[in-house]
Computed example of a mutant assay.
Amino acid sequence: MRGLRPGQRCEVWVAPGSGEAERAYSTGNMLLEAPNWTLDGRALILNGAGRLWRFDLRESSLSEVPLTGIPELNNDHVLDPDGGHIFLSGEDGHIYRAPLAGGPAARITDDDGSWHFLHGVSPDGRHLAYVDIAAGDFSKPGRLRTIPAAGGAPHDVEVGPGHCDGPEYAPDGNWLYLNTESFSTIPGHAQLARVRPDGSGFERLLNSSTVDWFPHLSPDGRLASYVRFPAGTQGHPADLPVDVVLVSTSDWTAPLHTWPLFGGQGTLNVNSWSPDSQRFAYVAYPLD
C-alpha cells in the first residue's frame, strides 16, 4: 500500500471555479487520495492506508468510515446518487457497494477472470462504468465496460485499441468521458475523449502534447477538471510535477485556470466536484 515518502506531506486542496485554491487539510502521517464530495456538501470522502475516510469540511476533522466485508481499497471510489452509499474498488480487483455511514459491503462483480477498476456511476444509479484488465495483466490495454449496479453481465464499449481509463458518466448520462491512448502511437500518450454508452460518437476532446488524464465534469455540466502529466509520461504515476486544469466544457482547448503541484496518482482520480458546481477538491504531495 502506497505511503508518504520521508519528508513528504499530503495536502487536500479546494479550488473554486476561478482564483486561488485553499488548503483544507495537511498531514505528514497518512497518504490520502482521490476525494469525492458528498451530496450534502459537508464532507470529502477519501481513501488512505487501504481504508475509507471522511473529512468534515466545517470541523476540519478526519474520521474513518468503518466498513466490513471488503478488502483493502484503492483510489477508485464513486458516490451512489442516492447520497447514502458508495461504490468502491478493492485491491482484490472487484467492485463493491457499501453504506456511506459505514457497515457491510456487498460485492457486485463476478469472478470473470478480470480486474475491475470503477470510475463512473450513471445519474440514475443503475449502471457503473469501469476499466477491465483481462486476467490482471497490466501489460495489456484496459477495456471500457459498463455493468448493472446491482450486478450482472458486463457490456463492452468500443473506444479503439489503446489503453483507456477514468470512464465517467456525464451529468445527463448521455456520454462517458475518459482518457485514451487510441489517438496516438506514442506509448502512454493519453488524451481526453468521450463516447456514448452504446459505443457510438467516439470523439477526441483535446489534441495536446501533454499526457492528459481523468476528466471530471461539474454537476451542472458547464465546467470540467483534469490532471495534466508531462509529455512522455506512461500511465499515471505518483510524485511528478503535474497540473490540475479547469476548462469550460464548451472549449476544452482554453484552460480557465491551472494549478501546478507535485502529485499525479491520487491527485484527481475520481470526480471531486461540490454538488453546487462551485468548487472541486484535489490532493497534492509536496516534498520538503
Rank of each mutant, 00 (worst) to 15 (best):
P230T: 12
R42T: 15
R196D: 01
G93K: 10
D156I: 03
R97T: 13
F229N: 07
F214N: 11
G120Y: 05
T68P: 03
S182L: 10
L246M: 02
A254T: 15
Y25I: 13
F202D: 00
D132T: 03
E72L: 11
P35K: 11
S18N: 07
D220P: 02
V78S: 00
Y285L: 13
S122L: 08
T210K: 11
L192W: 03
L62I: 14
L268E: 07
S250N: 03
L192K: 02
D198W: 06
N29M: 15
P255S: 09
R196C: 04
L246G: 00
A284W: 09
W252Q: 01
D56A: 15
W273A: 01
K140T: 14
G41R: 06
E181W: 10
A24C: 11
S200P: 00
T146R: 09
V245R: 00
P167D: 02
L31S: 14
G120I: 07
G160R: 03
G113W: 14
T210A: 14
A150N: 08
D80R: 05
Y96I: 00
L79C: 04
Y226F: 13
S122K: 08
D251E: 09
F229K: 05
P230L: 11
D288W: 12
P35A: 11
H85I: 00
V65Y: 04
A134N: 06
D112Y: 13
N74L: 01
R228C: 10
Y169Q: 05
P215N: 05
L79S: 03
R194D: 01
V270L: 01
T210F: 15
D276P: 01
I147T: 03
W13Y: 13
N36W: 00
G136R: 05
E22M: 12
L256V: 07
W213G: 02
H257T: 11
D198I: 08
A43F: 06
S184N: 14
D276T: 01
S60E: 13
G28K: 12
W273C: 00
T109L: 10
P71V: 02
P71Y: 05
A224H: 00
V247S: 00
L144V: 13
W13D: 10
G263L: 11
V78H: 00
I70W: 04
